Structures are given as C-alpha cells and as structure tokens.
Measured scan of single mutants.
Amino acid sequence: MKVIFLKDVKGKGKKGEIKNVADGYARNFLFKQGLAIEATPANLKALE
C-alpha cells in the first residue's frame, strides 16, 4: 500500500515521502499512530 508519511518513522521513511509499505503495517500502526495517510489521488493533490 502506498502511504504518505506525516512524520519521520525510523527505518521506514521521512515526513513528506511516499512509499510502499505492507498493508497491515499501514493500517495497524502508521494510520492509528497518525504517522501516515493513504496515498490516494486526493491526498497526493493536497500534499502539493
């Protein structure tokens, strides 16, 4: 799953980066902790 990092995550990505991560890791950790959001077209446009 492609995500946009909202904060730096050690070993995974830095704020503003778009990367592929495992679906479960994204849903169960990154999204719940507020560290990333899904890289949807609307979210990508908002990032610009």
Rank of each mutant, 00 (worst) to 15 (best):
L35M: 09
K15Y: 06
V21W: 02
K7Y: 11
K14M: 14
Y25T: 07
G16E: 01
K7V: 15
L44Q: 06
A39P: 03
G11R: 06
N20A: 12
K15Q: 09
K12I: 15
Q33S: 10
E38Y: 06
D23W: 12
K7S: 12
N20H: 15
L35H: 05
A36D: 00
N43G: 04
I18P: 01
V3H: 00
R27V: 14
K45R: 09
I4R: 02
F29H: 11
K10E: 13
K2N: 12
A26H: 05
A46T: 11
K19R: 14
A39E: 02
L35T: 03
T40K: 03
K45V: 13
F5R: 00
E48H: 08
E17I: 04
K2M: 15
N20K: 12
R27H: 11
K19F: 05
V9A: 04
G24M: 13
E17G: 02
V9I: 09
A36W: 01
K19I: 12
N28V: 08
Q33P: 02
K45I: 08
F29S: 06
V21T: 04
A26W: 12
V9E: 01
K15D: 02
K10L: 13
N43Y: 06
N28L: 14
A39W: 07
E38V: 05
F31P: 00
F29D: 08
F29Q: 07
G13M: 04
A42V: 08
A39K: 02
K10H: 12
L35G: 02
I37G: 01
E48G: 11
A39L: 05
E17D: 13
K19T: 09
T40H: 04
I4E: 01
E17M: 07
E38G: 04
K10Q: 13
K45L: 10
L47S: 07
G16A: 02
F29G: 04
L6D: 00
K10Y: 14
K15P: 05
A39N: 03
G34Y: 06
K10G: 08
N43M: 06
G34P: 00
N28A: 09
K10F: 13
N20M: 15
R27T: 11
P41Q: 08
G24A: 15
V3S: 00
A42Q: 10
F31Q: 03
K2A: 13
P41W: 11
D23I: 15
K45F: 07
K19Y: 08
